[in-house]
């Protein structure tokens, strides 16, 4: 390990929340293809899912889409693009889709790492690769993507306030100190995925996943990622009113 890397690692360890992660850029784009499964909850994303799966397929061998009862042919589109598509018979919600994906991947016993990825194309594949590098080099069980560790992402003030509120509640209930709770990009090692069972079917699963991963006491980090807010993802994203649902789902069980 050259002194530069050591310096970065020390900076990282001192920081905890870390701003300068940058594991040495490995050159092989398919370095994670064999041991990593990408899990994508899919619900009515026909216009983007083929592109998202296509991009991922350049880097990963195993892409699992959980079609959550889409009515627009998203499932067929994802399948044509090369994803393994599991179909929920009825719409259950994103949390339920993630849990189905975890159980499928863990059940096959072939994956070392699981990447959760949103179907709407707002995540960068490069971020996922770097998060995997970090997880493998530092033996982390969980890496959460966070859009608030640097200022590349501008969600707009209203969404920022909403997301920060949810983060605050999440930190309050989970005891972890995250900067971003509702970010769909995560790296989860197989043993961590095996240890959690999500029961929040709807959007509150994002807090639940933090809570349950936190309870496993496995090592975790946040990693700065950029969210590509397009007009499409803005229109599809969670409404501010939905954060009321999230809070009620979390508090009233």
């Amino acid at each position: 390990m050259d002194p530069g890397t050591v310096g970065k690692l020390i900076a990282f360890c001192n920081n905890g929340q870390m701003q300068v992660p940058a594991p040495e850029p490995a050159t092989d784009p398919r370095r994670h293809a064999a041991d990593t499964w990408v899990v994508i909850p899919l619900y009515n994303e026909i216009s983007v899912i083929a592109r998202v799966v296509g991009e991922l397929a350049a880097y990963f061998d195993h892409i699992v889409c959980i079609d959550d009862g889409s009515a627009d042919g998203s499932a067929a589109s994802a399948e044509a693009a090369g994803a393994r598509v599991l179909r929920h018979p009825i719409n259950l919600g994103q949390g339920a889709a993630l849990q189905t994906g975890f159980e499928y991947v863990v059940g096959r016993n072939e994956a070392d790492y699981i990447v959760t990825f949103d179907a709407d194309g707002q995540h960068r594949v490069e971020d996922a690769l770097e998060m995997l590098d970090l997880a493998k080099s530092q033996d982390l069980a969980i890496v959460f993507g966070s859009r608030f560790l640097d200022d590349r992402t501008d969600p707009g003030w209203l969404k920022r306030v909403m997301l920060k509120t949810v983060v605050w509640v999440t930190n309050l209930t989970t005891g972890l100190r995250l900067t971003d709770a509702h970010n769909g990009l995560r790296v989860i090692r197989a043993d961590a995925a095996r240890a959690i069972h999500l029961e929040q079917d709807r959007m509150a699963h994002a807090t639940e996943i933090v809570l349950k991963l936190g309870r496993t006491k496995l090592p975790w980090r946040e990693y700065p990622v950029e969210l590509l807010y397009t007009d499409y993802s803005r229109a599809k994203g969670q409404s501010v009113l939905n954060s009321v649902n999230i809070l009620v789902d979390l508090l009233v069980r």
Binding site: R84, L86, I90, A96, T100, R253
Partner: peptide, 28 residues
């Protein structure tokens, strides 16, 4: 009623997941 609704949804989710996984296993 709210509580029973939550419990029923929970069962429905588990049932639907089993169907999904069983179908996936068959396809695999």
């Amino acid at each position: 009623t709210y509580r029973r609704n939550v419990a029923t949804n929970r069962k429905l989710t588990l049932l639907a997941r089993q169907i999904t996984l069983a179908q996936a296993a068959t396809e695999d």
